[in-house]
Design a binder for these strands. Structure first.
Lengths: 212, 212
DNA sequence: AAAAGAGTGTCAATTTTTTCACATCAGAAT
DNA sequence: ATTCTGATGTGAAAAAATTGACACTCTTTT
């Protein structure tokens, strides 16, 4: 039913959207939902939704649908959101600070312990209660604070060397905002946020729309 | 070769990566590249790369490969990056300010003319030379300044109403950072940056990696 | 308790995407 | 000038993803 033959990335990328709507439904106190109703919310077809969930085992009940709370809990577990993560950010520019400041991540279990930068002007400053430290001190910090996630918000020129630092210190998950690809070992996961590319795609469709 | 039957979204989403590497190659003064070499850089297969380009007409030459400058120019045109766009941002929090501050977008032809917020504490402040204005004044600003792109960096609760304002004022392209879906007319394009979802996917793979 | 209704889980069909394979042509070499 | 090499463009095959259809089972109603 699952686990041995791994689930395709296409399916995985839909999970967060399900999770988001289930969170909303739960907050509204709705206890039951059908694939058809989820289809209306998410825009995916009902059939696809059932297929997706079945990759992880059948969570639904025939004639009833899905129990919102159960499904939410399952997705939470599948997405690995039932644990807490410690993260650090390298690059204490605006973007790094914005991420450090965003309460939403902490609510989801991702805690930013510290920012790092090499600019003496910002070292020592605090964002909320998160201190900006000297990049030279990052090795011991990571080791002493059980950091699992490294965030990169530097310019692209520094991104690979930051990734190297993360890898050397045993970090297995990197969230990269720099517009460049990274070379890391197989057992390290990199998730990119490609702001440039996203903007370019908007541009493409704007152009395509105008040409019709 | 193209234009009538439209190119699939799967292909489109690969274009920015090609464009990024071609920009790098151009900067390095490399004038010629084969699909095989591009494959090494991008991680896509050579065959896929040729197929992708052929959606827009053959840019290459048999026995030679692709001329970097030509291909770069073509992709630039396809992505609509050969024109300049004016943008505004609603939501002058950290994220909005970070985007306003990022020079990279301006270099790519996207100019942020103004930020808008309803918080009196930030109205009147400037990010670089970009003023934060009262959200109440946005209608006339958009009309008077030929704004084509509206960026949303508000909390999710306000996102739809901001989108409505954009649509009412004739904006056809919305870049949404709020973690919510938006309802807009068919002739308006929305591109989402889903930070939460990206982080969740990182979390998924971290979990999956640990369980192996 | 029985019948009706609803909606999942799943198999099969369809569609889309990716990969393969090669004829063809441009450029380089002799 | 001719041959050889290299790499595109493309048609066909393979693989992956999506959609369709329905048997089956659980819930609800009577």
């Amino acid at each position: 039913m699952a686990k041995d033959n791994q689930v395709s990335i296409t399916v995985i990328r839909r999970l967060p959207k399900y999770y988001r709507y289930l969170t909303e439904l739960k907050e509204k106190g709705i206890s039951r939902i059908s694939s058809q109703e989820l289809s209306v919310l998410t825009g995916f077809t009902a059939s696809q939704i059932r297929q997706d969930f079945n990759n992880f085992g059948g969570f639904g009940q025939q004639g009833y649908g899905y129990n919102v709370e159960d499904l939410h809990r399952e997705l939470k577990k599948i997405l690995g959101l039932d644990t807490n993560y410690n993260a650090v950010i390298v690059g204490a520019g605006n973007l790094g600070q914005a991420i450090a400041n965003y309460k939403g991540f902490e609510d989801a279990g991702f805690k930013v312990l510290s920012l790092f930068d090499r600019n003496p002007k910002v070292i020592g400053l605090k964002i909320r209660d998160i201190e900006i430290r000297d990049i030279e001190t990052i090795d011991s910090f990571i080791k002493e604070n059980n950091v699992q996630i490294g965030i990169i918000t530097t310019p692209k020129e520094s991104a690979q060397s930051v990734a190297d630092i993360y890898v050397q210190n045993g970090i297995k998950g990197i969230w990269n905002f720099a517009p460049t690809d990274l070379v890391v070992p197989d057992n390290v996961v990199v998730e990119h946020v490609r702001l440039n590319e996203s903007l370019f795609i908007l541009s493409y469709f704007l152009r395509a729309m105008n040409e019709q």
